[in-house]
Design a protein around this nucleic acid. Sequence first.
RNA 1: GGCGUUAUAGCUCAGUUGGUUAGAGCGAACGACUCAUAAUCGUUAGGUCGGUGGUUCAAGUCCACCUAACGCCA
Length: 573
Amino acid sequence: MARHLITSAIPYINGIKHLGNLVGSQLPADLFARYQRARGHEVLFLCATDEHGTPAELAAAKAGKPVADYCAEMHAVQAEIARGFRLSFDHFGRSSSPQNHALTQHFAGRLAEAGLIREVVEKQVYSVKDGRFLPDRYIEGTCPNCGYDKARGDQCENCTKQLDPTDLIDARSAISGATELEVRDTKHLYLRQSALKDQLDTWIDSKTDWPVLTTSIAKKWLHDGEGLRDRGITRDLDWGIPVRKGDADWPGMEDKVFYVWFDAPIEYIACAGEWAEANGLSEEDWQRWWRMDKGADDVRYTQFMGKDNVPFHTLSFPATLIGSGEPWKMVDHLKSFNYLNYDGGQFSTSQGRGIFMDQALEILPADYWRWWLLSHAPESSDSEFTWENFQSAVNKDLADVLGNFISRITKFCSSKFGEVVPGGAGYGEPETAAISEIETRLKRYEAQMEAMEVRKSAQELRAIWVCGNEYLQTVAPWTTFKTDPEAAAAQTRLGLNMAHLFAVLSAPFLPDASQKILASLNVDKPIWPDDPTTFLDRLGPGHTFAVPEVLFAKISDEDREAWQERFSGQRTG
RNA sequence: GGCGUUAUAGCUCAGUUGGUUAGAGCGAACGACUCAUAAUCGUUAGGUCGGUGGUUCAAGUCCACCUAACGCCA
Protein backbone atom coordinates (compact mmCIF):
# COMPACT_ATOMS: atom_id res chain seq x y z
CA MET A 1 0.00 0.00 0.00
CA ALA A 2 1.42 3.31 -1.08
CA ARG A 3 1.05 6.59 0.78
CA HIS A 4 -0.10 9.66 -1.11
CA LEU A 5 0.15 13.19 0.19
CA ILE A 6 -1.94 15.42 -2.05
CA THR A 7 -2.39 19.18 -1.85
CA SER A 8 -4.38 21.61 -3.93
CA ALA A 9 -3.32 25.24 -4.32
CA ILE A 10 -5.08 27.09 -1.56
CA PRO A 11 -7.81 29.51 -2.68
CA TYR A 12 -7.69 33.10 -1.52
CA ILE A 13 -10.22 34.06 1.10
CA ASN A 14 -11.85 37.12 -0.48
CA GLY A 15 -14.90 35.68 -2.13
CA ILE A 16 -16.22 32.70 -3.95
CA LYS A 17 -14.11 31.14 -6.67
CA HIS A 18 -15.22 30.53 -10.26
CA LEU A 19 -15.19 27.30 -12.21
CA GLY A 20 -11.83 28.14 -13.76
CA ASN A 21 -10.26 28.19 -10.31
CA LEU A 22 -11.99 24.96 -9.40
CA VAL A 23 -10.80 22.98 -12.41
CA GLY A 24 -7.30 24.42 -12.07
CA SER A 25 -6.46 22.67 -8.82
CA GLN A 26 -9.05 21.51 -6.30
CA LEU A 27 -11.13 19.36 -8.63
CA PRO A 28 -8.34 17.37 -10.33
CA ALA A 29 -6.68 16.98 -6.93
CA ASP A 30 -9.92 15.51 -5.62
CA LEU A 31 -10.12 13.16 -8.59
CA PHE A 32 -6.64 11.88 -7.87
CA ALA A 33 -7.28 11.57 -4.14
CA ARG A 34 -10.51 9.64 -4.65
CA TYR A 35 -8.84 7.37 -7.16
CA GLN A 36 -5.90 6.54 -4.90
CA ARG A 37 -8.24 5.86 -1.98
CA ALA A 38 -10.35 3.60 -4.18
CA ARG A 39 -7.21 1.67 -5.06
CA GLY A 40 -6.74 1.05 -1.36
CA HIS A 41 -3.84 3.45 -0.78
CA GLU A 42 -3.39 5.66 2.23
CA VAL A 43 -4.17 9.24 1.27
CA LEU A 44 -3.85 12.57 3.04
CA PHE A 45 -5.57 15.22 0.93
CA LEU A 46 -5.22 18.78 2.19
CA CYS A 47 -6.47 22.17 1.20
CA ALA A 48 -7.04 25.45 3.04
CA THR A 49 -7.93 29.08 2.60
CA ASP A 50 -5.19 31.63 2.03
CA GLU A 51 -6.25 34.42 4.37
CA HIS A 52 -3.58 37.03 4.84
CA GLY A 53 -2.66 40.14 2.94
CA THR A 54 -4.06 43.40 1.71
CA PRO A 55 -6.94 42.06 -0.42
CA ALA A 56 -8.42 40.34 2.64
CA GLU A 57 -8.19 43.54 4.65
CA LEU A 58 -9.81 45.51 1.87
CA ALA A 59 -12.60 42.97 1.37
CA ALA A 60 -13.28 42.95 5.09
CA ALA A 61 -13.39 46.74 5.19
CA LYS A 62 -15.79 46.75 2.30
CA ALA A 63 -18.02 44.27 4.12
CA GLY A 64 -17.75 46.43 7.25
CA LYS A 65 -16.36 43.64 9.39
CA PRO A 66 -13.22 42.99 11.40
CA VAL A 67 -10.87 41.09 9.16
CA ALA A 68 -10.68 38.06 11.46
CA ASP A 69 -14.47 37.75 11.49
CA TYR A 70 -14.66 38.22 7.75
CA CYS A 71 -12.11 35.49 7.13
CA ALA A 72 -13.85 33.11 9.51
CA GLU A 73 -17.14 33.65 7.70
CA MET A 74 -15.66 33.30 4.24
CA HIS A 75 -13.82 30.17 5.28
CA ALA A 76 -17.11 28.65 6.35
CA VAL A 77 -18.70 29.66 3.04
CA GLN A 78 -15.88 28.19 0.99
CA ALA A 79 -15.89 25.01 3.05
CA GLU A 80 -19.62 24.59 2.47
CA ILE A 81 -19.22 25.03 -1.29
CA ALA A 82 -16.34 22.58 -1.32
CA ARG A 83 -18.59 20.03 0.33
CA GLY A 84 -21.19 20.83 -2.31
CA PHE A 85 -18.73 19.88 -5.02
CA ARG A 86 -17.83 16.78 -3.04
CA LEU A 87 -14.22 17.82 -2.63
CA SER A 88 -12.96 15.13 -0.30
CA PHE A 89 -10.36 17.04 1.69
CA ASP A 90 -9.16 15.22 4.75
CA HIS A 91 -8.90 18.70 6.16
CA PHE A 92 -9.78 22.14 4.87
CA GLY A 93 -7.58 24.37 6.95
CA ARG A 94 -6.80 28.06 7.32
CA SER A 95 -3.50 29.83 6.78
CA SER A 96 -4.40 31.93 9.83
CA SER A 97 -4.33 28.88 12.11
CA PRO A 98 -2.16 28.78 15.23
CA GLN A 99 -0.27 25.90 13.64
CA ASN A 100 0.67 28.06 10.68
CA HIS A 101 1.66 30.95 12.90
CA ALA A 102 4.04 28.72 14.80
CA LEU A 103 5.43 26.96 11.77
CA THR A 104 5.94 30.11 9.72
CA GLN A 105 7.81 31.72 12.60
CA HIS A 106 9.79 28.54 12.99
CA PHE A 107 10.88 28.56 9.34
CA ALA A 108 11.80 32.23 9.51
CA GLY A 109 13.96 31.47 12.54
CA ARG A 110 15.71 28.58 10.84
CA LEU A 111 16.33 30.64 7.71
CA ALA A 112 17.75 33.48 9.78
CA GLU A 113 20.09 31.09 11.60
CA ALA A 114 21.27 29.79 8.25
CA GLY A 115 22.08 33.33 7.17
CA LEU A 116 19.43 33.31 4.48
CA ILE A 117 17.54 36.37 5.66
CA ARG A 118 18.79 39.88 5.15
CA GLU A 119 17.34 43.10 6.50
CA VAL A 120 16.69 45.92 4.07
CA VAL A 121 15.73 49.49 4.85
CA GLU A 122 13.20 50.88 2.42
CA LYS A 123 11.24 54.05 2.06
CA GLN A 124 7.52 53.76 2.47
CA VAL A 125 4.55 56.05 2.91
CA TYR A 126 3.51 56.52 6.54
CA SER A 127 0.16 57.93 7.61
CA VAL A 128 0.52 59.93 10.79
CA LYS A 129 -3.18 59.92 11.60
CA ASP A 130 -3.60 56.19 10.99
CA GLY A 131 -0.37 55.52 12.87
CA ARG A 132 0.84 53.00 10.32
CA PHE A 133 2.66 52.44 7.08
CA LEU A 134 0.41 52.18 4.07
CA PRO A 135 0.71 49.55 1.32
CA ASP A 136 0.70 51.10 -2.14
CA ARG A 137 -2.88 50.27 -2.80
CA TYR A 138 -4.00 51.84 0.47
CA ILE A 139 -3.10 55.22 -0.94
CA GLU A 140 -5.49 57.14 -3.17
CA GLY A 141 -5.05 60.31 -5.13
CA THR A 142 -5.37 61.94 -8.50
CA CYS A 143 -3.70 60.19 -11.40
CA PRO A 144 -0.99 62.37 -12.96
CA ASN A 145 -1.67 60.71 -16.28
CA CYS A 146 -5.43 60.94 -16.75
CA GLY A 147 -6.67 63.02 -13.86
CA TYR A 148 -8.83 60.26 -12.39
CA ASP A 149 -9.30 61.20 -8.73
CA LYS A 150 -9.44 57.71 -7.23
CA ALA A 151 -6.22 56.28 -8.58
CA ARG A 152 -4.42 53.86 -6.28
CA GLY A 153 -0.78 54.01 -5.30
CA ASP A 154 0.12 50.97 -7.38
CA GLN A 155 -1.98 51.57 -10.46
CA CYS A 156 -4.66 53.86 -11.88
CA GLU A 157 -7.76 51.78 -12.50
CA ASN A 158 -9.02 54.32 -15.01
CA CYS A 159 -6.09 54.48 -17.42
CA THR A 160 -4.32 51.32 -16.13
CA LYS A 161 -1.02 53.16 -15.79
CA GLN A 162 1.37 51.68 -13.24
CA LEU A 163 2.16 54.22 -10.54
CA ASP A 164 4.28 54.82 -7.52
CA PRO A 165 2.52 56.29 -4.50
CA THR A 166 4.65 59.41 -4.77
CA ASP A 167 3.33 60.03 -8.29
CA LEU A 168 -0.17 60.72 -6.98
CA ILE A 169 -1.46 64.26 -6.74
CA ASP A 170 -3.21 65.09 -3.44
CA ALA A 171 -2.41 61.65 -2.05
CA ARG A 172 -4.50 60.49 0.89
CA SER A 173 -4.96 57.42 3.03
CA ALA A 174 -7.60 55.04 1.70
CA ILE A 175 -8.32 54.02 5.28
CA SER A 176 -9.04 57.36 6.87
CA GLY A 177 -8.76 59.88 4.06
CA ALA A 178 -5.95 61.56 5.99
CA THR A 179 -3.66 63.66 3.87
CA GLU A 180 -0.88 63.91 6.38
CA LEU A 181 1.41 61.42 4.71
CA GLU A 182 5.15 61.23 4.85
CA VAL A 183 7.81 58.97 3.47
CA ARG A 184 9.69 57.19 6.23
CA ASP A 185 12.32 54.51 6.46
CA THR A 186 11.06 51.04 7.28
CA LYS A 187 12.91 47.79 7.70
CA HIS A 188 11.93 44.63 5.86
CA LEU A 189 13.22 41.08 5.66
CA TYR A 190 14.29 39.48 2.39
CA LEU A 191 14.69 35.79 1.75
CA ARG A 192 18.01 35.24 0.01
CA GLN A 193 16.69 32.93 -2.65
CA SER A 194 19.67 33.81 -4.82
CA ALA A 195 21.94 32.00 -2.36
CA LEU A 196 19.92 28.84 -2.92
CA LYS A 197 19.91 29.09 -6.69
CA ASP A 198 22.33 26.24 -7.34
CA GLN A 199 20.58 23.89 -4.94
CA LEU A 200 17.23 24.68 -6.53
CA ASP A 201 18.68 24.23 -9.99
CA THR A 202 20.03 20.82 -9.08
CA TRP A 203 16.76 19.86 -7.50
CA ILE A 204 14.76 20.91 -10.58
CA ASP A 205 17.19 19.00 -12.80
CA SER A 206 16.51 15.85 -10.80
CA LYS A 207 12.82 16.05 -11.73
CA THR A 208 13.13 14.44 -15.13
CA ASP A 209 9.53 13.25 -15.19
CA TRP A 210 8.02 16.72 -14.79
CA PRO A 211 6.11 18.27 -17.67
CA VAL A 212 8.06 20.70 -19.79
CA LEU A 213 5.59 23.46 -18.97
CA THR A 214 6.55 23.18 -15.32
CA THR A 215 10.32 22.90 -15.61
CA SER A 216 10.56 25.60 -18.25
CA ILE A 217 8.77 28.09 -16.03
CA ALA A 218 11.08 27.25 -13.15
CA LYS A 219 14.17 27.43 -15.34
CA LYS A 220 13.12 30.76 -16.70
CA TRP A 221 12.91 32.26 -13.23
CA LEU A 222 16.23 30.72 -12.28
CA HIS A 223 18.19 31.91 -15.27
CA ASP A 224 16.53 34.89 -16.89
CA GLY A 225 18.20 38.24 -16.42
CA GLU A 226 20.04 38.42 -13.11
CA GLY A 227 18.70 35.03 -12.14
CA LEU A 228 16.57 34.22 -9.12
CA ARG A 229 15.95 37.35 -7.10
CA ASP A 230 15.65 37.73 -3.36
CA ARG A 231 12.13 38.42 -2.20
CA GLY A 232 10.67 40.48 0.57
CA ILE A 233 8.87 38.33 3.11
CA THR A 234 7.45 40.99 5.41
CA ARG A 235 4.78 43.67 5.22
CA ASP A 236 3.43 46.53 7.29
CA LEU A 237 -0.02 45.15 7.96
CA ASP A 238 -2.06 44.25 11.00
CA TRP A 239 -3.57 41.07 9.61
CA GLY A 240 -1.00 38.34 9.27
CA ILE A 241 1.54 36.30 11.13
CA PRO A 242 3.69 38.49 13.42
CA VAL A 243 7.35 38.47 12.49
CA ARG A 244 9.24 36.38 15.02
CA LYS A 245 12.40 34.34 14.99
CA GLY A 246 10.92 31.04 16.06
CA ASP A 247 9.81 31.62 19.66
CA ALA A 248 11.87 34.75 20.04
CA ASP A 249 11.15 38.39 19.28
CA TRP A 250 12.72 39.90 16.20
CA PRO A 251 14.15 43.24 17.23
CA GLY A 252 13.06 46.06 14.99
CA MET A 253 10.27 44.02 13.38
CA GLU A 254 7.69 44.46 16.11
CA ASP A 255 4.83 45.81 13.98
CA LYS A 256 5.40 43.68 10.91
CA VAL A 257 3.80 40.55 9.63
CA PHE A 258 5.04 38.00 7.12
CA TYR A 259 4.07 38.59 3.53
CA VAL A 260 1.28 36.32 2.41
CA TRP A 261 3.30 34.41 -0.21
CA PHE A 262 5.73 33.31 2.50
CA ASP A 263 3.19 31.87 4.92
CA ALA A 264 0.67 30.48 2.42
CA PRO A 265 2.64 27.44 1.19
CA ILE A 266 3.77 26.67 4.73
CA GLU A 267 0.08 26.14 5.41
CA TYR A 268 0.34 22.92 3.39
CA ILE A 269 2.34 21.57 6.31
CA ALA A 270 0.48 23.38 9.06
CA CYS A 271 -2.76 22.04 7.63
CA ALA A 272 -1.59 18.52 8.42
CA GLY A 273 -1.16 19.69 12.00
CA GLU A 274 -4.68 21.13 11.99
CA TRP A 275 -5.92 17.83 10.58
CA ALA A 276 -4.24 15.91 13.38
CA GLU A 277 -5.67 18.21 16.02
CA ALA A 278 -9.17 18.05 14.57
CA ASN A 279 -9.06 14.27 14.60
CA GLY A 280 -7.52 13.79 18.00
CA LEU A 281 -4.21 12.59 16.55
CA SER A 282 -0.69 13.26 17.73
CA GLU A 283 2.28 15.23 16.38
CA GLU A 284 3.78 12.00 15.10
CA ASP A 285 0.65 11.30 13.10
CA TRP A 286 1.05 14.33 10.90
CA GLN A 287 4.84 14.40 10.92
CA ARG A 288 4.96 10.96 9.33
CA TRP A 289 3.57 12.72 6.24
CA TRP A 290 5.96 15.62 6.24
CA ARG A 291 9.22 14.76 7.95
CA MET A 292 11.65 12.50 6.15
CA ASP A 293 13.19 11.64 9.52
CA LYS A 294 9.82 10.69 10.97
CA GLY A 295 8.42 8.28 8.44
CA ALA A 296 7.69 10.38 5.35
CA ASP A 297 10.41 8.76 3.24
CA ASP A 298 7.87 6.47 1.53
CA VAL A 299 5.34 9.24 0.90
CA ARG A 300 4.61 10.30 -2.65
CA TYR A 301 3.71 13.99 -2.62
CA THR A 302 1.68 15.49 -5.47
CA GLN A 303 0.71 19.14 -5.79
CA PHE A 304 -2.04 20.52 -8.04
CA MET A 305 -2.14 24.15 -9.15
CA GLY A 306 -2.80 26.66 -11.92
CA LYS A 307 0.15 27.64 -14.08
CA ASP A 308 0.43 31.05 -12.42
CA ASN A 309 1.36 29.26 -9.19
CA VAL A 310 4.22 27.23 -10.60
CA PRO A 311 7.07 29.58 -9.58
CA PHE A 312 5.98 29.57 -5.96
CA HIS A 313 5.82 25.81 -5.83
CA THR A 314 9.00 25.09 -7.78
CA LEU A 315 11.19 27.81 -6.30
CA SER A 316 9.94 29.94 -3.42
CA PHE A 317 8.48 27.21 -1.23
CA PRO A 318 11.31 24.75 -1.95
CA ALA A 319 13.73 27.56 -1.07
CA THR A 320 12.04 27.83 2.32
CA LEU A 321 12.21 24.08 2.88
CA ILE A 322 15.78 23.59 1.67
CA GLY A 323 16.97 26.71 3.46
CA SER A 324 15.62 25.46 6.78
CA GLY A 325 18.20 22.69 6.73
CA GLU A 326 15.57 20.32 8.08
CA PRO A 327 14.42 17.11 6.37
CA TRP A 328 11.02 18.23 5.11
CA LYS A 329 9.20 16.25 2.45
CA MET A 330 9.54 17.93 -0.93
CA VAL A 331 7.10 17.64 -3.78
CA ASP A 332 7.51 14.61 -6.05
CA HIS A 333 4.95 15.37 -8.68
CA LEU A 334 3.56 18.70 -9.69
CA LYS A 335 0.51 18.88 -11.91
CA SER A 336 -0.24 22.31 -13.31
CA PHE A 337 -3.16 23.53 -15.37
CA ASN A 338 -3.76 26.23 -17.91
CA TYR A 339 -6.77 28.50 -17.88
CA LEU A 340 -10.38 27.81 -18.64
CA ASN A 341 -12.01 30.48 -20.77
CA TYR A 342 -15.65 31.43 -20.67
CA ASP A 343 -17.57 31.96 -23.88
CA GLY A 344 -14.77 33.62 -25.75
CA GLY A 345 -13.14 35.51 -22.88
CA GLN A 346 -11.61 34.84 -19.51
CA PHE A 347 -13.30 33.92 -16.30
CA SER A 348 -12.69 36.87 -14.05
CA THR A 349 -13.15 37.15 -10.31
CA SER A 350 -12.64 40.90 -10.22
CA GLN A 351 -15.06 41.55 -13.05
CA GLY A 352 -17.56 38.93 -11.93
CA ARG A 353 -17.44 37.28 -15.32
CA GLY A 354 -18.32 33.62 -15.78
CA ILE A 355 -19.87 31.06 -13.45
CA PHE A 356 -19.04 30.97 -9.77
CA MET A 357 -19.01 27.86 -7.65
CA ASP A 358 -22.09 28.72 -5.60
CA GLN A 359 -24.09 29.64 -8.70
CA ALA A 360 -23.11 26.42 -10.45
CA LEU A 361 -24.49 24.35 -7.59
CA GLU A 362 -27.70 26.34 -7.59
CA ILE A 363 -28.56 25.22 -11.09
CA LEU A 364 -27.16 21.70 -11.33
CA PRO A 365 -25.76 18.97 -9.06
CA ALA A 366 -22.02 18.62 -8.57
CA ASP A 367 -21.61 15.56 -10.78
CA TYR A 368 -22.63 17.47 -13.90
CA TRP A 369 -19.96 20.10 -13.35
CA ARG A 370 -17.37 17.62 -12.22
CA TRP A 371 -17.82 15.59 -15.37
CA TRP A 372 -17.68 18.44 -17.80
CA LEU A 373 -14.84 20.27 -16.09
CA LEU A 374 -12.68 17.21 -15.69
CA SER A 375 -13.32 15.83 -19.15
CA HIS A 376 -12.39 19.25 -20.57
CA ALA A 377 -9.63 20.17 -18.12
CA PRO A 378 -7.16 22.70 -19.57
CA GLU A 379 -4.14 20.42 -19.46
CA SER A 380 -2.08 21.02 -22.58
CA SER A 381 -3.43 24.49 -23.32
CA ASP A 382 -6.20 26.84 -22.33
CA SER A 383 -9.65 25.42 -22.97
CA GLU A 384 -13.04 26.85 -23.51
CA PHE A 385 -16.40 26.63 -21.74
CA THR A 386 -19.47 27.16 -23.87
CA TRP A 387 -23.01 26.42 -22.84
CA GLU A 388 -23.71 24.47 -26.05
CA ASN A 389 -20.75 22.24 -25.45
CA PHE A 390 -21.66 21.78 -21.79
CA GLN A 391 -25.23 20.87 -22.65
CA SER A 392 -24.37 18.36 -25.35
CA ALA A 393 -21.54 16.73 -23.36
CA VAL A 394 -23.64 16.33 -20.24
CA ASN A 395 -26.70 15.08 -22.08
CA LYS A 396 -24.80 12.67 -24.25
CA ASP A 397 -22.21 11.30 -21.84
CA LEU A 398 -24.10 11.29 -18.58
CA ALA A 399 -27.76 10.96 -19.49
CA ASP A 400 -27.59 8.93 -22.71
CA VAL A 401 -24.52 6.74 -22.31
CA LEU A 402 -24.18 6.11 -18.56
CA GLY A 403 -27.57 7.03 -17.11
CA ASN A 404 -29.56 5.29 -19.77
CA PHE A 405 -27.47 2.16 -19.50
CA ILE A 406 -28.22 1.87 -15.79
CA SER A 407 -31.84 2.57 -16.52
CA ARG A 408 -32.30 0.09 -19.36
CA ILE A 409 -30.59 -2.84 -17.68
CA THR A 410 -32.30 -2.45 -14.30
CA LYS A 411 -35.72 -1.88 -15.83
CA PHE A 412 -35.36 -4.76 -18.25
CA CYS A 413 -34.37 -7.14 -15.49
CA SER A 414 -37.13 -5.89 -13.26
CA SER A 415 -39.79 -6.51 -15.91
CA LYS A 416 -38.59 -9.99 -16.95
CA PHE A 417 -37.01 -11.45 -13.82
CA GLY A 418 -37.94 -9.11 -11.00
CA GLU A 419 -35.60 -6.96 -8.89
CA VAL A 420 -33.17 -9.77 -8.35
CA VAL A 421 -30.07 -10.89 -10.23
CA PRO A 422 -31.19 -13.84 -12.37
CA GLY A 423 -29.39 -17.18 -12.55
CA GLY A 424 -29.73 -18.96 -15.88
CA ALA A 425 -26.85 -20.10 -18.04
CA GLY A 426 -23.16 -19.40 -17.55
CA TYR A 427 -21.28 -16.77 -19.53
CA GLY A 428 -20.52 -17.69 -23.15
CA GLU A 429 -18.44 -16.35 -25.99
CA PRO A 430 -20.03 -12.88 -26.35
CA GLU A 431 -19.67 -12.38 -22.59
CA THR A 432 -16.01 -13.34 -22.64
CA ALA A 433 -15.41 -10.94 -25.51
CA ALA A 434 -17.13 -8.06 -23.73
CA ILE A 435 -15.26 -8.74 -20.49
CA SER A 436 -11.96 -8.88 -22.33
CA GLU A 437 -12.68 -5.55 -24.02
CA ILE A 438 -13.50 -4.00 -20.66
CA GLU A 439 -10.34 -5.41 -19.15
CA THR A 440 -8.19 -3.82 -21.84
CA ARG A 441 -9.83 -0.46 -21.36
CA LEU A 442 -9.72 -0.73 -17.59
CA LYS A 443 -5.93 -1.10 -17.70
CA ARG A 444 -5.71 1.98 -19.86
CA TYR A 445 -8.01 3.89 -17.51
CA GLU A 446 -5.86 2.97 -14.54
CA ALA A 447 -2.69 4.01 -16.37
CA GLN A 448 -4.16 7.39 -17.32
CA MET A 449 -5.37 8.00 -13.77
CA GLU A 450 -1.97 7.13 -12.34
CA ALA A 451 -0.40 9.56 -14.79
CA MET A 452 -2.97 12.23 -13.86
CA GLU A 453 -4.00 12.54 -17.49
CA VAL A 454 -7.39 13.89 -16.59
CA ARG A 455 -9.03 14.27 -19.98
CA LYS A 456 -7.74 10.97 -21.25
CA SER A 457 -8.98 9.24 -18.12
CA ALA A 458 -12.44 10.67 -18.72
CA GLN A 459 -12.32 9.55 -22.33
CA GLU A 460 -11.38 6.02 -21.33
CA LEU A 461 -14.05 5.88 -18.64
CA ARG A 462 -16.67 6.91 -21.15
CA ALA A 463 -15.43 4.24 -23.55
CA ILE A 464 -15.98 1.67 -20.80
CA TRP A 465 -19.58 2.83 -20.37
CA VAL A 466 -20.05 2.43 -24.11
CA CYS A 467 -18.91 -1.20 -23.80
CA GLY A 468 -22.04 -1.82 -21.75
CA ASN A 469 -24.42 -0.44 -24.33
CA GLU A 470 -22.49 -2.19 -27.07
CA TYR A 471 -22.80 -5.53 -25.29
CA LEU A 472 -26.53 -5.18 -24.69
CA GLN A 473 -27.04 -4.16 -28.28
CA THR A 474 -25.08 -7.15 -29.51
CA VAL A 475 -26.71 -9.88 -27.44
CA ALA A 476 -30.16 -8.21 -27.26
CA PRO A 477 -31.57 -10.00 -24.20
CA TRP A 478 -35.06 -8.66 -25.03
CA THR A 479 -34.93 -10.80 -28.19
CA THR A 480 -33.10 -13.74 -26.62
CA PHE A 481 -35.72 -13.84 -23.90
CA LYS A 482 -38.40 -14.92 -26.37
CA THR A 483 -36.57 -18.09 -27.39
CA ASP A 484 -34.02 -18.80 -24.68
CA PRO A 485 -34.82 -17.29 -21.25
CA GLU A 486 -31.84 -19.02 -19.64
CA ALA A 487 -29.41 -17.28 -21.97
CA ALA A 488 -31.26 -13.98 -21.55
CA ALA A 489 -30.88 -14.37 -17.80
CA ALA A 490 -27.12 -14.71 -18.11
CA GLN A 491 -26.97 -11.69 -20.40
CA THR A 492 -28.98 -9.66 -17.93
CA ARG A 493 -26.79 -10.84 -15.07
CA LEU A 494 -23.67 -9.59 -16.84
CA GLY A 495 -25.44 -6.30 -17.61
CA LEU A 496 -26.17 -5.74 -13.94
CA ASN A 497 -22.61 -6.62 -13.01
CA MET A 498 -21.42 -4.08 -15.55
CA ALA A 499 -23.58 -1.47 -13.84
CA HIS A 500 -21.78 -2.36 -10.62
CA LEU A 501 -18.41 -2.06 -12.33
CA PHE A 502 -19.27 1.29 -13.88
CA ALA A 503 -20.35 2.65 -10.52
CA VAL A 504 -17.04 1.74 -8.91
CA LEU A 505 -14.92 3.05 -11.78
CA SER A 506 -16.89 6.28 -12.04
CA ALA A 507 -16.73 7.16 -8.36
CA PRO A 508 -13.70 9.49 -8.63
CA PHE A 509 -15.47 11.54 -11.29
CA LEU A 510 -19.08 11.16 -10.20
CA PRO A 511 -19.22 10.41 -6.49
CA ASP A 512 -22.96 11.01 -6.09
CA ALA A 513 -24.13 9.06 -9.11
CA SER A 514 -21.77 6.25 -8.19
CA GLN A 515 -23.21 6.14 -4.70
CA LYS A 516 -26.77 6.06 -6.04
CA ILE A 517 -26.02 3.15 -8.34
CA LEU A 518 -24.27 1.21 -5.59
CA ALA A 519 -27.14 1.86 -3.20
CA SER A 520 -29.72 0.62 -5.68
CA LEU A 521 -27.60 -2.46 -6.32
CA ASN A 522 -27.34 -3.09 -2.57
CA VAL A 523 -23.56 -2.87 -2.54
CA ASP A 524 -22.27 -1.21 0.60
CA LYS A 525 -18.57 -1.87 0.50
CA PRO A 526 -17.27 -1.26 -3.00
CA ILE A 527 -13.91 -2.75 -3.92
CA TRP A 528 -11.74 -1.98 -6.93
CA PRO A 529 -12.09 -4.45 -9.86
CA ASP A 530 -8.48 -5.61 -9.96
CA ASP A 531 -9.68 -8.64 -11.88
CA PRO A 532 -12.68 -7.76 -14.08
CA THR A 533 -13.50 -11.39 -14.82
CA THR A 534 -14.23 -12.26 -11.21
CA PHE A 535 -15.59 -8.81 -10.47
CA LEU A 536 -18.23 -9.17 -13.20
CA ASP A 537 -19.52 -12.24 -11.40
CA ARG A 538 -19.78 -10.66 -7.96
CA LEU A 539 -23.49 -9.96 -8.09
CA GLY A 540 -24.63 -13.58 -8.14
CA PRO A 541 -28.06 -15.11 -8.73
CA GLY A 542 -30.50 -14.12 -6.00
CA HIS A 543 -28.80 -10.79 -5.15
CA THR A 544 -31.57 -8.21 -4.89
CA PHE A 545 -31.58 -4.65 -6.15
CA ALA A 546 -33.98 -1.77 -6.78
CA VAL A 547 -34.48 0.17 -9.99
CA PRO A 548 -32.90 3.58 -9.30
CA GLU A 549 -34.40 6.96 -10.05
CA VAL A 550 -33.23 8.64 -13.23
CA LEU A 551 -29.58 9.45 -12.58
CA PHE A 552 -29.13 12.45 -14.83
CA ALA A 553 -31.89 14.69 -16.13
CA LYS A 554 -31.14 16.24 -19.47
CA ILE A 555 -30.46 19.90 -19.91
CA SER A 556 -33.18 21.34 -22.12
CA ASP A 557 -32.62 24.04 -24.69
CA GLU A 558 -34.78 26.36 -22.60
CA ASP A 559 -32.60 25.83 -19.53
CA ARG A 560 -29.46 26.37 -21.51
CA GLU A 561 -30.72 29.59 -23.03
CA ALA A 562 -31.90 30.89 -19.67
CA TRP A 563 -28.52 30.18 -18.06
CA GLN A 564 -26.66 31.59 -21.01
CA GLU A 565 -28.63 34.78 -20.55
CA ARG A 566 -28.26 34.84 -16.78
CA PHE A 567 -24.49 34.40 -16.89
CA SER A 568 -23.82 36.62 -19.85
CA GLY A 569 -22.96 39.76 -17.93
CA GLN A 570 -21.31 40.57 -14.66
CA ARG A 571 -22.14 38.90 -11.45
CA THR A 572 -24.45 41.11 -9.49
CA GLY A 573 -25.23 39.14 -6.41
C1' G B 1 7.37 47.93 -27.64
C1' G B 2 9.64 43.24 -25.19
C1' C B 3 8.75 38.17 -23.79
C1' G B 4 5.69 33.93 -24.08
C1' U B 5 1.68 30.61 -25.59
C1' U B 6 -1.57 28.89 -29.27
C1' A B 7 -3.10 28.13 -34.55
C1' U B 8 -5.06 20.08 -36.70
C1' A B 9 -12.18 17.92 -39.64
C1' G B 10 -18.64 22.45 -38.74
C1' C B 11 -17.61 22.32 -32.82
C1' U B 12 -14.34 20.73 -28.43
C1' C B 13 -9.80 18.53 -28.57
C1' A B 14 -5.68 13.91 -29.22
C1' G B 15 -1.38 13.41 -32.05
C1' U B 16 5.05 10.25 -27.80
C1' U B 17 11.83 10.87 -29.34
C1' G B 18 10.17 13.52 -37.49
C1' G B 19 8.50 7.53 -40.76
C1' U B 20 3.40 3.47 -43.99
C1' U B 21 -3.66 5.60 -46.24
C1' A B 22 -3.62 12.37 -39.82
C1' G B 23 -7.29 10.26 -34.82
C1' A B 24 -11.52 10.63 -30.79
C1' G B 25 -16.18 12.57 -29.02
C1' C B 26 -20.08 15.82 -30.49
C1' G B 27 -22.80 17.48 -34.80
C1' A B 28 -24.44 15.52 -40.06
C1' A B 29 -26.24 11.46 -43.52
C1' C B 30 -27.74 6.42 -43.89
C1' G B 31 -28.90 1.69 -41.71
C1' A B 32 -30.12 -1.75 -37.42
C1' C B 33 -32.79 -2.35 -32.81
C1' U B 34 -37.12 -1.33 -29.69
C1' C B 35 -35.10 -3.17 -23.17
C1' A B 36 -34.22 2.08 -21.98
C1' U B 37 -34.13 9.21 -20.10
C1' A B 38 -37.25 9.80 -28.58
C1' A B 39 -32.25 6.47 -25.43
C1' U B 40 -28.67 2.63 -27.94
C1' C B 41 -25.49 0.12 -31.73
C1' G B 42 -23.22 0.15 -36.64
C1' U B 43 -21.60 2.40 -41.33
C1' U B 44 -20.30 6.69 -44.14
C1' A B 45 -18.98 11.66 -45.38
C1' G B 46 -15.64 15.83 -43.81
C1' G B 47 -9.06 18.19 -42.96
C1' U B 48 -3.47 20.51 -49.03
C1' C B 49 -2.55 19.85 -40.10
C1' G B 50 -2.71 29.25 -40.17
C1' G B 51 0.77 31.09 -44.56
C1' U B 52 5.68 31.08 -47.13
C1' G B 53 10.43 29.17 -47.48
C1' G B 54 14.18 25.74 -45.60
C1' U B 55 16.70 21.10 -43.36
C1' U B 56 15.88 15.72 -44.48
C1' C B 57 15.38 9.75 -48.13
C1' A B 58 11.01 11.36 -45.07
C1' A B 59 7.69 17.03 -41.35
C1' G B 60 1.34 18.26 -38.40
C1' U B 61 6.04 16.79 -35.65
C1' C B 62 12.68 20.40 -36.53
C1' C B 63 14.50 25.75 -38.32
C1' A B 64 13.49 30.90 -40.27
C1' C B 65 10.18 34.57 -41.53
C1' C B 66 5.03 36.21 -41.89
C1' U B 67 -0.20 36.46 -40.20
C1' A B 68 -3.97 35.98 -36.38
C1' A B 69 -5.76 35.27 -31.37
C1' C B 70 -4.61 35.30 -26.39
C1' G B 71 -1.52 36.01 -22.03
C1' C B 72 2.51 38.30 -19.07
C1' C B 73 5.63 42.47 -18.62
C1' A B 74 6.91 47.35 -19.81
